[in-house]
């Protein structure tokens, strides 16, 4: 507690950046929870409506289903929310278990890029099916 009396730095200033996330841990934390809450209904909808509802659908039936605006919207919401939530989770896992700074930053960057690319591809597929001629 000597540091507390001697230092001009505030308690918050000393604590900031010490966690394994280094920066913006609170923003990461709340984004992970918000996407988690959103994914509870979205994931249940995806399993029971999108997957089970199209369990024996042919291409025409699946296309007709996804062309309904509500289904296209929920698919896009599920895609963006799940890829975002997945990237946030992978970043925490990499921060915790990859210790070499270089490898940590590169794997985190790759996780973000993979999530962005995968999510974008799925979204474009949904738009192609829903809007394509």
């Amino acid at each position: 507690m000597d540091t507390k009396s001697r230092s001009m730095q505030s308690a918050l200033g000393r604590a900031r950046g010490l966690g394994s996330a280094k920066a913006d841990a609170a923003g990461h934390w709340s984004a992970q929870r918000i996407t988690a809450v959103a994914l509870v209904p979205l994931a249940l909808w995806f399993v029971f409506a999108a997957v089970i509802g199209n369990i024996d659908a042919d291409h025409a039936a699946f296309r007709a289903w996804i062309a309904q605006p509500i289904n296209a919207t929920l698919m896009m919401l599920f895609i963006f929310t799940s890829f975002h939530h997945g990237a946030l989770g992978m970043i925490v896992v990499l921060e915790d278990y990859v210790h070499a700074p270089g490898a940590k930053h590169i794997t985190i960057m790759l996780a973000k890029m993979a999530a962005a690319a995968g999510g974008l591809f799925c979204a474009i597929c949904v738009l192609t099916l829903a809007l394509g001629g």
Binding site: F62, I66, G118, F121, C122, C125, L129
Partner: peptide, 9 residues
């Protein structure tokens, strides 16, 4: 997910 919606597209 990528395989499923990708195949459909």
């Amino acid at each position: 997910l990528i395989y499923w919606v990708g195949a459909a597209a």
